[in-house]
Design a protein around this nucleic acid. Structure first.
Lengths: 175, 175
DNA sequence: GGTTGATTTGAACGCTTGTTCAGTTAACCC
DNA sequence: GGGTTAACTGAACAAGCGTTCAAATCAACC
């Protein structure tokens, strides 16, 4: 996972992977049928862990949205390599594997879309298009991983506060 | 550019590039010293074109922010391959080349940061941290490229309207 | 029509790629 | 302590990699 994240799937050789775990290249094939499965298994495990960890909706759209924002930032921050691979190496997947990962990703996006829809129905949110807004919010939150590093000016909690403030404003009825 | 965007820098061979332009691999070396320069030149050209095309600030923070949002979406939508490469292949750059591209990117981020700062100073925006908010907005806007395709349910103008609405709300003083 | 200079070819270089497999090693059970 | 099984090595395979370069081809000019 670390090697794929650092150099990209196709730039990493089976010999490099083997050396990183202290065996010869041939030994890897006792654990994986081929290199592609290595990538797919990493991505599938990441997406399933993400869906498993996703907090259940409680019913109050504002609280659910805040929970989602804070969860997404914290969960992604804790797994930078897996997140990076899952966004960058989609094109390295064979079509059948790509479709399976995309299906998992869609379930995640749908979760947020439902929260937004519920909020619109309840009159507490105003978004013109729940699907588009879900994509926008997820892109914004995932972007945290590109710049945030612990130990700097801001704590993870600070970042969660800032982003929740922005998402709340973006979803609010315009004043 | 198309090949790099589709398969990734290290997955594309000089022979594939040569075939795509109708020559043998050796002929490419009359135009580029090596493969790395091919990537760097693409990314540098993209970033410089982006900075050149960036609309000047007029002075009114709200209008400047709206201009930026609409510009970013339209400009990036028109160059999906260059955008994709410039975000995905940073790790394929040698350190010296990476630093030069990052410097250009920072100038772009600074442009938005100044708009936000001006708005806060003028009392029309309320963002807790202009730098973080700039990163958040750019990530959100760039995300459009991952899902929007012309000819679907929404026009580019629709998308610009939706995103401007969200950015406006995210930057607004909470009501 | 012959000369010049730029382009391109096609082969070659040494090296790396993913994957296979016969043979060796190590660990465990009865 | 002998037998079984799982794990690993190290070499080999055919193919492809980025890059170089002498030779062939092309285009333009006097």
């Amino acid at each position: 996972m670390r090697l794929f994240a650092e150099a990209g799937y196709s730039a990493v050789s089976m010999r490099q992977i083997a050396a990183a775990v202290g065996v010869q290249a041939g030994a890897l094939y006792n654990y994986t049928p081929d290199k592609q499965s290595l990538l797919f298994d990493l991505m599938q495990a990441h997406m399933e862990e993400l869906l498993d960890a996703l907090p259940r909706r409680a019913g109050d759209p504002t609280a659910d949205l805040e929970t989602f924002v804070r969860f997404h930032i914290a969960h992604h921050h804790a797994r930078p390599d897996a997140v990076f691979i899952s966004y960058m190496e989609l094109r390295s997947l064979e079509p059948a594997n790509f479709a399976r990962i995309e299906a998992l990703r869609k379930r995640y996006e749908d979760h947020l879309e439902v929260i937004l829809r519920d909020g619109v129905a309840a009159g507490v949110f105003h978004v013109e298009d729940a699907k588009v807004s879900a994509m926008a919010v997820i892109a914004m939150l995932t972007g945290v991983n590109t710049w945030f590093r612990q130990g700097g000016r801001l704590s993870l909690g600070d970042v969660q506060d800032i982003y929740w403030g922005m998402v709340k404003g973006a979803a609010a009825r315009p004043s």
